[in-house]
């Protein structure tokens, strides 16, 4: 019988492996058997990333089986269920991050050690986002100024807020 892996040398060894939770026995030549065993020594951590992720999701309380779907356990935008997410490791749409947000946070923290984006912001739409951020800050400052009765400062801030709002509306 020939080796199941290289189909060249005769099979002389039986090797049992656990792949995705299934036990598999292969008849291999010595060379292939050695290569396979060397390969499992553990510096390839991403071999089955989806399995790893779905294990992680279960650990954080995402359902393991096709459980009864409760309200809120489904993305309101795309309809992805928690159960399907836990099984596939894939979210269904951008809104999923909002629907599953609080439950996703510890998962993200475990994967990335962090939950806040620090990198690039889209050039065009991100510009609007930066304006929005500045607008929020100005509005907070305005409230503070009014409560301190700094009316001159408040008037100044109102002008800048109006200007920013105009910019935002014009896109």
């Amino acid at each position: 019988m020939e080796c199941e892996r290289c189909h060249q040398r005769p099979a002389t060894v039986h090797v049992t492996q656990i792949v995705n939770g299934d036990k598999r026995t292969m008849r291999l030549c010595e060379e292939c058997a050695r290569e396979i065993q060397v390969g499992t020594m553990g510096f390839f951590p991403q071999i089955d990333f989806h399995n790893f992720l779905s294990g992680l999701l279960h650990e954080f309380g995402f359902p393991t089986g096709p459980a009864v779907v409760t309200a809120g356990a489904r993305c309101g935008a795309c309809g992805l269920t928690e159960e399907r997410f836990a099984r596939q490791g894939l979210l269904g749409c951008g809104e999923c991050y909002r629907y599953f947000g609080p439950r996703l946070e510890p998962v993200l923290r475990r994967i990335h050690g962090n939950t806040r984006h620090m990198g690039k912001v889209p050039e065009r739409t991100g510009g609007k986002m930066r304006l929005k951020n500045r607008l929020e800050r100005l509005k907070a400052e305005l409230q503070a100024a009014v409560s301190r009765e700094e009316f001159e400062r408040a008037a100044e801030l109102r002008d800048r807020i109006r200007e920013l709002e105009k910019q935002l509306q014009e896109g």
Binding site: L53, G89, L90, L91, G92, Y97, T115, R116, H117
Partner: peptide, 11 residues
């Protein structure tokens, strides 16, 4: 997303 950055299918 402002907080999470570019949203992807896999977290």
């Amino acid at each position: 997303d402002e907080k999470l950055g570019y949203l992807t299918a896999c977290p």
